[in-house]
Nucleic acid binder design. Structure first.
Length: 292
DNA sequence: AAAAGCCCCTGGACGC
DNA sequence: TGCGTCCAGGGGCTTT
């Protein structure tokens, strides 16, 4: 489900509930997520204080007073829900949770009285405890490319990463080693805004020396703009993504191409029709007329 | 080494 | 209403 804007939305929702608080109780109802949680998972969290919650690409990282970092990934269908004591008193907890409670796999009880529930129907999500001193060597994080919203991500960086790549631009942008945090939606939307075809060979945004051309400039600008707008809207809610307060993200209403097969291209004067193709086994939506 | 394919899993939408 | 089929915001691992 969640790409960078959704994960960032979740991070911001978890922050007030968890930062500076300690775990009073941790329930593991189903430990068989993408990778099984270790036997001592709950025990290693209990009593520890969350000193901060960060994000790297689509990973959430909770820094703990024990020196561990709790690494969390939402997979395709994972979500976190925060309930305050007053929610429970008002009966909100029960009303909102009963339908999905079967997939509440991990529950954090925080010293603030807040309950943080990890729900994940497909169980592609994961959690892992890593000593902070070993974070640099963490395999899941090690190969990740630059953060697309960071200053280090610019046309030169992207062009260098795409230099000599024979694969499609779409596949290159989905590759987390090239740029970290984009997924199927925001790749499609970025390519549309940059007026670049998803079928274009990735290396064509750079010259032979790997220097960026004007396509690379446009693409980087589009990526940053789309992600920033999406974060402002609380992400996109298609099937599973919700904010930690249960409210929906709103960016799906701003999709220009994603999931809009057969609809008119929104580019003024274009007159094209959004097409769906399959690349590397995943849907791509684009306008064949104005995306070259 | 790079690129593409396979798979993990559940549920919703669709056609018959 | 009850199937069966296809599809889904990811990504590690395996194969080509």
């Amino acid at each position: 489900m969640p790409e960078l804007p959704e994960v960032e939305t979740v991070r911001r929702g978890l922050e007030p509930a968890m930062e500076g608080k300690h775990f009073t109780k941790v329930e593991v109802r189903r430990g068989d997520l993408r990778w099984p949680l270790p036997k001592d998972f709950a025990q290693r969290l209990k009593g520890k204080t969350v000193t901060g919650i960060g994000r790297r690409a689509k990973y959430l990282l909770a820094d703990l007073s024990s020196g561990d970092v709790l690494l969390m990934h939402l997979g395709m269908s994972g979500s976190f829900h925060v309930f305050q004591e007053k929610d429970r008193q008002l009966g909100r907890y029960h009303r909102q949770r009963e339908k999905h409670a079967a997939h509440d796999h991990v529950v954090f009880h925080m010293s603030s009285g807040a309950t943080v529930t990890f729900n994940d129907p497909r169980r592609f999500g994961s959690m892992k405890l890593v000593p902070r001193t070993k974070l640099d060597a963490e395999p899941f994080l090690k190969g990740l490319g630059p953060e697309p919203l960071g200053n280090a991500f610019d046309a030169a960086t992207l062009a260098r990463a795409c230099r000599g790549k024979k694969t499609s631009l779409k596949a290159a942008l989905l590759d987390q080693r090239v740029v970290a945090g984009l997924g199927n939606i925001y790749v499609c939307e970025s390519l549309y805004r940059a007026r670049l075809s998803p079928k274009r060979t990735a290396s064509t945004i750079a010259d032979r020396k790997g220097e960026p051309n004007q396509r690379a400039e446009r693409l980087v600008e589009s990526i940053k703009a789309v992600l920033n707008e999406a974060i402002k809207s609380g992400g996109s809610s298609l099937r599973d993504h919700q904010r930690t307060d249960g409210e929906l993200g709103m960016f799906q209403h701003n999709f220009r191409v994603y999931d809009r097969e057969g609809k008119p291209c929104p580019t003024p004067g274009c007159g094209g029709t959004i097409k769906r193709i399959v690349q590397n086994g995943r849907s791509t939506f684009y306008c064949p007329l104005c995306q070259k």
